[in-house]
Each structure stands twice: as C-alpha cells, then as structure tokens.
Nucleic acid binder design. Structure first.
Lengths: 361, 361
DNA sequence: CTGAAAGCGCTTACAG
DNA sequence: CTGAAAGCGCTTACAG
C-alpha cells in the first residue's frame, strides 16, 4: 500500500496549482493551454497560483498525454554564424524550458523559401519563427498567412498587423553610436551600409545621418558605400572608402560587426592604426567584435533574449490563432552601447581637421 | 465506455512488443534498460520482437515514469561560431524530438569550468554533453566524475573508459585528404597545426605525415607551423610559411577551415592565385569553407549528426549510471572528403618541381 | 464554465 | 528470473 515514490525533484505539479487555486487540475490545464472557457476570475486565481508556485508544465507529461504539442518551425536563411549560434542558444534554452518542439530548417535559397516552408507546415508546424531576413520576405509571409499558421518576426524593420514582432530601435541605436563618435571629435565619416533586403540597414543609416545633421555636418563630409553584412562585402566597401578618399575619414561606421572587422583588417593592412588614425564601429555585438583586435565599439543587440522571447511569443500566437482573440504583440527590446578599443579621439581633434592623417605605406 | 483515443501516430509500444514476445511489458522494460535479470532466451525473444516491430521507446514516457526527468547540460567553451551553430542545431533538433531538457552554459574561461559545471549540477543536471575542447579537460572530467553525473565527450582524441564518446577518425581523414593532394602532384607542403589543447590537432598532423611518409616524401619538403584553430592564428602561421619559405610550398594543409580561409586570404594578398599557384585545404567543412573564394576542399565532419547522437547517448548514459550496468558506448561517425575549388594540380607537376613559382609583387 | 474518469507509454517498488 | 499493480504529470473525451 504505502508505495513510496520519491517525489520528483521538480517543482510544483498541475495538482499543486489546482489545490492552491481551489479548482480542478482540468481548469489549470485549460488556463495554461488556451485560457479559453474559463471565467476571468478563475483564470486570475489560477494564474497567480502558477506564479506563486513557480509552476512550469512538464513537457514530457504534456507530450505523453497527447496534447497536440506546440510544434514550432524555425526557418532561417543564412545569417552569419555568430548571429545564428546566439539565436539558437536562446531558442534551445526557451524551448527546453517550455517543452516546445522546435523544427529547424535552413532555407537554402531565398527563392526556395516557399518550398522549405511547405515542408515545415506539412510536418505539422503550428507557428513559425522568422529571423532576418526572412521576417521581411513577402513571399514567406503570404505563404504562412495562407496556411493559417502563426508567425513571429525577429528584427524586422517595423511592427506588423499580421504577425508578432520583436525588434530593437535600430535608428536610435545608430544615432547614439554616432553621437559617441561626434563626442570624440570626429567630423569626417565613412559609412558602410547593410544588405538592402533588410529595413534595418536603412534605419541604421538614417540614425547615423540624423545624428550628423543634428551636429551640423554636411553630406560632403560623409562617404557612404554599399555592403551586404558579410566580411567580404565589408572589405570591398572599406577599400573604396580608404583607397579613394583624400583625406580619409577619421571614423567609419559599419552597419554590422563583420563589416567593421573587415574594415579594421584592411586599415591595418594599409598601415593605419586603429583607433589612433581611424576609429571603427560596428553593430550587433557579435562574437567577432571581441575576437578581433582592437575589440570593436558596437551596439549590443540581445539576440539570445530576442530568440527566447520569440519562442514564448510564437506559443502565444498559436494560442491566439486557435482562439481568434487579440492582436499580435509587438515587442521592443533594449539595446546597449558598448564602447571598446576601436573608437578613440579623432586625430588632431581641433575641430574640422584641415591636416589629414598622412597616408602611410 | 468506448473512449476513443487517437492512437499515437508513433509506432509500436512496449505492450505490442510484450505481446509479440509472449512476456509482460516489465520484461521488455528490463531488456531495453539493463538486459539484466532476464534469461538469455527470453531476452532473445524480446529483442527480435523489438526488431520486427521496429520499436523505439518513447522518451517522454520514460522521462515521465522515471520521475527524474532527463536534464542535460551542454557546457561549451568558445569554439568557433560555425561549429557552435551547427552543434546547437543538432542538439535542438534531437532534444526537441526526444523531449529532453537541455540547459546550455558557456564556460567563460577554461579555468572557471569547475564553477560553471557546478552551476549546472546544482540545477539538477543528470548528464553533460562536452564539445571540444572541454571533452579533454581533466579538471572538468574529474568534477563530473565526483558528482556522479553522466558525460558524453564529442570529438575527443580517443575513446574513454569513463565516458561515452563520439568521434570521427581524424587521422584517417587527414591521410585521405593528403593523398588527394599527392594525387594532384604536390610534393612541397605547408601544414598549420591546430590548438595543442586538443588531441585531434595531433591526429590530423599524424595522418598528414603518414601519407607523406608512405609517398616517400621527406620532412625537408614540409614546413609545419603552429596554429590555434582561429582565423587570426591561421594568418600568422600562413605568413610564416609564405614569407620565409623559398620556394613556397605548392599546397598548404590547415588543420581547420578557419585557418585555411585565413591562408587563402593571405595568399591572395601576396598575389598568389589559389589553386593555380597554391592549393589550400582545410578540415571540418564549416560554413566558412563555402563563404570564401575559392571554396575550400576539406573534410566534412558531421557536427549536427554528432550533436544529435550526443543527446541520445547522454540519455543512455544517465540510465546506465542509474543501473550501474554496462560500459560507456564509443561511437565513430563517418567523415567525407569534400573536393572543392581550393585544391588543384601542382604547378609544373613534372614531379619535384625545381622551378618554384615566382614570387609576385 | 467546470470537473471526474480514463489513458498516454513507461518505470519503480513489490511480490513471488 | 518474471509479473501485477500503481503511478509519473498531463490531456482528451465526456458529462454536467
């Protein structure tokens, strides 16, 4: 009779919550799943019991009991491995915590996004997480909408009426980073743009230009080149800026860290000291930012946290699609300016330098 | 009464196997877990029933019934982001499939591995997955052993009596890659070693040297430099090889792709054509191998598959630790030689070239 | 809107 | 060496 079973080391179970809230386990189940068919008052009671007990449903039990599990698709399209690894870190963390099942699929070519997406949908995916640049692919979004699946876009340019989004304020961040450079006395700039298929590229440029405009610096003191977020493209763009300009800028703002790292590498090759002769700043705070020397001044984008939020949000969205109530949520995450060694006082910082740094050989 | 429950889409259950074998589910459970306390004949019966029904135990049910859920820790120490992202991809995939809970923790400094590990153990982790180089950290392994936790080492140098391991045959792969170069007529080589804290570095070198020895090529035709698996270290090593050698080698084997990519970049900078003047090969087949131009000839290491196997294996190990029966499993995964554009016929391949490529400027 | 019953597939703890 | 019973934490399918 007295079968002793060591109590799971875990924490509270659905029964504990039920007892605490004075309802049946069934009602708790309803609250954590759809929230539907439960009186508002009851739901509140249950929710606070959940919070007090710090209850998390057991994924194993859930999946065993045969609830249609939350099947989430993560469709990605060749972002940098630095971004991807941090994104996956956050996803793994949160999916483990919540017991969500995540199917990952790489979209080999953007043109094939539709096919890859179809594969996920056929696998029974209820919702999708779309990191950049897929979050802005009209084709992908249309397909998802058609299939009636939930979606969360990570780092799109703008909030959306059709899907939940998680973003940072790229324009404000770029402005702040530029103000940092202005504060160091820089007055002649280079800017390497991001890939044109992402709105954030434009926003980072806009923030940069806004800061310059506010400081009264004319467009003739700025050399802008197109990049595509890759190291290679950064190298090409930096080459154009550093080879053709006379005098060269005293600071270059690259729209991401990969391109900033490439710019630093090229600057060294050309014999410039960073930041003595040339300050360089990036964006994103990816691993490469501290892997290079000097470490890059940049804007930290909380990629892992955004991925964690995406997992939660897509589960919310799946529930929302099932109940049909509410609108997709739009989250704004905080960014942080990270000042490291790649930015320093402008050379001859007596205002508008008329004495450009000599071009070494 | 007639409660219809949709039968799990899955396949056979433990009961199906029991019926087929004419035993109770309990006996089947014994067979799949320890194999102990079961008559040899009975075990055979059960095993063939398992095979015929293609039965796989449900991880969710196991974890639920076992009351102690499988909590797995993934401790990593700063591998390349390319490796990490692929590793996480595999981990996410398999943990999602099996319902295992994975806690990921980055080990900021190798010296602090103990502390980070303690954190995971306190969080109730039953088993650990250790990607390189932690799989070879004596301190970490001792700590795990002391805590009585299960462990799986991914890509250590050798099988281990104390933990399960998943490896590829690095020496054979390096030999095969070198034979590819020999087949192209190369007779003067450079080799960039991997980080000395990993046995695989040594094994890749050994495989390389073994192939040369077999081809009757003396050590004087080989220039070996130390690298540390990073792009930066590859640059430094390549510089030594290409700056100081006269004549330069016609082929350079870098112990991973990052260093091979760096070598290619330096070669271009110095005005050499790859593979016209110089063939370059890497190892691992990470994303950077196809991101650079020319794409790298390399050895594909199935990192994602190894990570998936690690998740399964650590669950096996956790069960094994609980039952105390059996020995840790040692898995060997297949590698694949991938020939791309960075390797080609040796210049003036009329045997031992006495007419070295001119050094361009 | 809410709950009692049955069951998901497996294991632990007993009893032979 | 083997099995019947109870239970892991949750959900589905009913019944109110």
């Amino acid at each position: 009779m007295a079968r002793q079973r060591r109590r799971a080391i875990q924490g509270a179970t659905i029964r504990d919550v039920a007892v605490r809230a004075g309802v049946s386990p069934m009602t708790v189940s309803r609250v954590i799943n759809s929230g539907d068919n439960v009186r508002t008052e009851t739901r509140k009671l249950v929710n606070s019991a959940i919070r007090e007990l710090n209850y998390t449903p057991s994924p194993a039990a859930r999946s065993l009991a045969g609830s249609v599990p939350y099947r989430i698709g993560l469709l990605y399209d060749n972002p940098s491995t630095g971004y991807l690894s941090e994104f996956l870190l956050g996803t793994l963390d949160e999916s483990s915590r919540t017991g969500a099942q995540v199917l990952v699929e790489k979209c080999v070519e953007t043109e094939l996004a539709g096919a890859t997406l179809g594969k996920l949908l056929r696998a029974g995916v209820d919702g999708l997480i779309l990191p950049p640049p897929l979050c802005e692919s009209a084709e992908v979004l249309a397909e998802i909408h058609k299939a009636g699946a939930a979606a969360v876009g990570v780092a799109p340019g703008h909030p959306s009426a059709d899907m939940a989004t998680i973003r940072i304020d790229n324009e404000a961040a770029a402005r702040e980073l530029t103000e940092h450079l202005l504060g160091l006395g820089h007055r002649r700039f280079g800017f390497i743009k991001g890939h044109p298929n992402q709105t954030v590229s434009e926003q980072r440029l806009n923030g940069f230009l806004a800061a310059l405009a506010q400081a009264g610096i004319g467009r003739d003191a700025v050399r802008i080149e197109q990049g595509y977020f890759t190291y290679r493209s950064g190298l090409d763009a930096a080459e154009k800026i550093l080879d053709d300009s006379a005098p060269i800028p005293t600071a270059i703002f690259a729209a991401n860290d990969d391109m900033a790292a490439a710019t630093a590498a090229l600057a060294h090759r050309l014999g410039y000291d960073v930041p003595e002769d040339l300050s360089i700043v990036g964006f994103d705070d990816q691993p490469i930012a501290v892997a290079v020397w000097p470490a890059l001044t940049t804007v930290h984008q909380p990629v892992a946290a955004m991925a964690r939020a995406a997992v939660d949000l897509v589960m919310d969205e799946i529930r929302r699609m099932r109940t049909g109530i509410g609108a997709p949520r739009q989250l704004l995450h905080p960014y942080t300016l990270i000042v490291r060694e790649s930015s320093g006082p402008a050379p001859q910082a007596q205002g508008l330098s008329s004495d450009p740094a000599p071009r070494p050989t």
